[in-house]
């Protein structure tokens, strides 16, 4: 039951994008189409899970002072593996994600989880935590990219409704990303605050 909580917290309560506001660079840059969003999310989840296992395994061997370089080497290894496999088996996705796959190395979510969680917890819980965070990140990317693609490009999952309206390009350009994320975080904060208020009144 505790493991389930560890998994679920990444999806909502501590969602990396909407609650912790981490890893915004790739989120802003690649959330132009749903396919990109899913691809980026899955690549990051793979890196998160892989690096979590190893960071957790070596957590008692690695001395405090050199832990960051060790974590980065582990993370970079998994990022390069993901990058190479993507290039080999999904060249189209690799091309549209471009620089942002190698840049997962510096994604704050990955190093953040290594530092805050898997360097202190046993492998099993680290995997669960990383999976939750990864899926939370992927879901956030899907929500953002679905809004941006359908509004800005008039397409979603292969359907095209650009005949119904002329899509505002604004939404798939950089300012549209900032606006979408800002409005979503605002909405989530509004509802959590309201919920908190109601709970407070009950007590």
């Amino acid at each position: 039951m505790k493991l389930l909580g560890e998994f679920l917290k990444g999806i909502w309560r501590e969602n990396p994008t909407f609650r912790m506001v981490l890893g915004l660079c790739p989120t802003l840059a690649v959330s132009t189409t749903i396919a990109n969003g899913i691809g980026m999310g899955l690549a990051a989840t793979f890196v998160l899970v892989g690096s979590s296992i190893f960071v957790s395994l070596v957590r008692n061997i690695v001395p405090e002072k050199v832990r960051i370089p060790c974590y980065i080497v582990i993370i970079a290894t998994f990022v390069t593996i993901a990058d190479l496999f993507m290039k080999a088996y999904s060249p189209a996705l690799s091309r549209s994600l471009g620089m942002f796959v190698p840049l997962i190395v510096v994604n704050c979510i990955v190093l953040g989880r290594a530092e805050a969680f898997s360097s202190k917890e046993p492998p099993m819980r680290s995997i669960i935590d990383a999976l939750g965070m990864g899926i939370g990140f992927t879901l956030a990317l899907i929500v953002i990219s679905a809004i941006r693609e359908s509004l800005g490009n008039g397409t979603a999952l292969g359907f095209s409704f650009s005949r119904v309206f002329e899509p505002p390009l604004f939404m798939i350009l950089a300012p549209g990303a900032l606006l979408t994320i800002g409005l979503l975080i605002g909405l989530i904060n509004y509802f959590t605050a309201k919920k908190g208020l109601r709970r407070g009144k009950k007590d």
Partner: peptide, 19 residues
């Protein structure tokens, strides 16, 4: 410290070379 970091790097290199 150097040894541990070196070991991790060596392992990473091996994995990457294979991939």
């Amino acid at each position: 410290f150097g040894l541990i970091l070196g070991l991790i790097c060596a392992a990473a290199t091996l994995v990457l070379a294979v991939t």
